[in-house]
């Protein structure tokens, strides 16, 4: 699985409250989450997500287990998130909704091209290649299917 997008650089400890605030959770309308994604961090950020790769610091997605955070990023058109580490629930949620998440170190310059090769286990940021922590076979299978629900349907 190969992915590419333009880098959006974020810091460490990006919590799920700032990805999508609690006040927008009481709906099934995914468009609401897309409209308000990152509103409390930077209201302009949501518009830049389509075709982009977030390159963040440690502990991305910490805090609440709300899967709406991963869904909002995926539905907004984000290609992937690269970070040295993720909060574990967000990490599972992202894989389960088909949003590639990659544990790796990447020197981030806003707008640089980020290339991710999940099969080779490498990420390239602005031309500099580094190794990523490989995803398990099961995680890759879920991602290839576009998420756990589509995989489940396919296996039925």
């Amino acid at each position: 699985m190969q992915l590419e997008g333009k880098a959006i650089c974020l810091g460490a400890d990006i919590d799920t409250d700032v990805i999508i605030a609690g006040r927008y959770l009481r709906t099934k309308d995914r468009q609401v989450w897309v409209e308000h994604v990152f509103e409390d961090l930077d209201p302009s950020l949501g518009r830049r997500l389509p075709g982009s790769v977030i390159v963040a610091g440690r502990n991305f997605g910490c805090g609440s287990s709300r899967e709406q955070a991963a869904v909002a990023l995926k539905e907004a058109g984000l290609v992937a998130v690269v970070a040295p580490s993720f909060s574990r629930i967000f990490f599972r949620n992202a894989i389960n909704v088909g949003l590639p998440v990659v544990e790796g170190e990447c020197r981030c310059a806003s707008g640089d091209l980020v290339l991710i090769d999940l099969d080779e286990g490498v990420v390239s940021c602005g031309g500099a290649r580094t190794l990523i922590r490989p995803l398990t076979t099961r995680m890759q299978e879920i991602l290839r299917a576009g998420g756990l629900a589509p995989l489940w349907r396919a296996k039925k």
Binding site: S65, R66, E67, A70, I89, F90, R92, N93, N96, V97, G147, L148, A149, W152
Partner: peptide, 9 residues
């Protein structure tokens, strides 16, 4: 803790 899709499974 887990997310919603994990819980559905």
């Amino acid at each position: 803790g887990v997310g919603a899709t994990d819980m559905a499974a």
